[in-house]
Amino acid sequence: MSEAQQNTNGAERSLSLEEIFEQRIANDEKIEPKDWMPEKYRKTHIRQISQHAHSEIVGMLPEGNWITRAPSLRRKVALLAKVQDEAGHGLYLYSACETLGISREELYEQLHSGKAKYSSIFNYPTITWADMGAIGWLVDGAAIINQVPLCNTSYGPYARAMIRVCKEESFHQRQGFEIMMTLCNGTEVQKQMAQDALNRWWWPALMMLGPTDDVSVHTEQSMKWKLKRKTNDELRQQFIDQTVPQADILGLTVPDPDLKWNEETGHYDFGEIDWDEFWQVVKGHGPCNKERMNARVGAWERGTWVRDAAMAYAEKQQNKKENQAKAV
């Protein structure tokens, strides 16, 4: 060991566990499940990763609504694959979350009891086929902007899950945009359908990127832990800047009279977001909160006997094997 290394080690010994931990994160080192971590780091990560997992799982419901009524086989296989991906993303994230010492049972219990939140956007209804286009284009678009920076987050299992999620997410957005494109190139009625979907999803998609920086309570700590690499307002601006030109290509009008390119800042200026609506939906009073939770809890409860039967069968097979081994 060189003298310099000895000195640093000597100096480290006088640092607290917490200081060493913060230093490791500052140095872009990853934290792995068995490493020491402050309780608050563990709790914050459980909260965020589980919220994220719940959003994937609940996010299957508004789209599942259209699988049987997709307008063509091509659309149907794509939507089916997308919903299946969302189940997969939920599973990657739940297992990443479990490495922090919380069981899958507890995680489900938190979702079902309403203690844990999921993304408020999934509490809006999907009333026309164009909503499948708008969700893929806008909701998945906003999700990608949120998720890409998370591929570099400090907690190893979360970062690895996010890398896999992000790889798969871009197909989701492209299939959504293609649906919008097709409608916009169709009949006048179809184009109106696309416009109507944009009108309904635009503002909720902007809200999806979270409360403004001045009221966001977790931002500062989360930035420090690299659980967040950009603030909500920065992400929202990025989303608007890249989505407005896409709306132009579709020939659709973004439903914001204050939306205007600002030559000076190099960004779009945009109108006031209705945060009352956001908080209403977060607190459970959105159009579909109840319906989503009923569907989710119902599916879980109706599946109980299947899970029990699978477990009983596995035990029976195991016993059989053991008895055979004894007999030999």
Binding site: Q84, G88, L91, Y92, S95, A96, E98, R104, R160, A161, R307, A310, M311, Y313, A314, Q317, Q318
Partner: peptide, 19 residues
């Protein structure tokens, strides 16, 4: 690659294929 829940090894293989 990650982890998942399953009742037995065979189901774990099948689920791993899908996940």
């Amino acid at each position: 690659f990650g982890s998942l829940h399953a009742a037995d090894a065979e189901m774990a293989l099948e689920n791993a294929r899908d996940v």
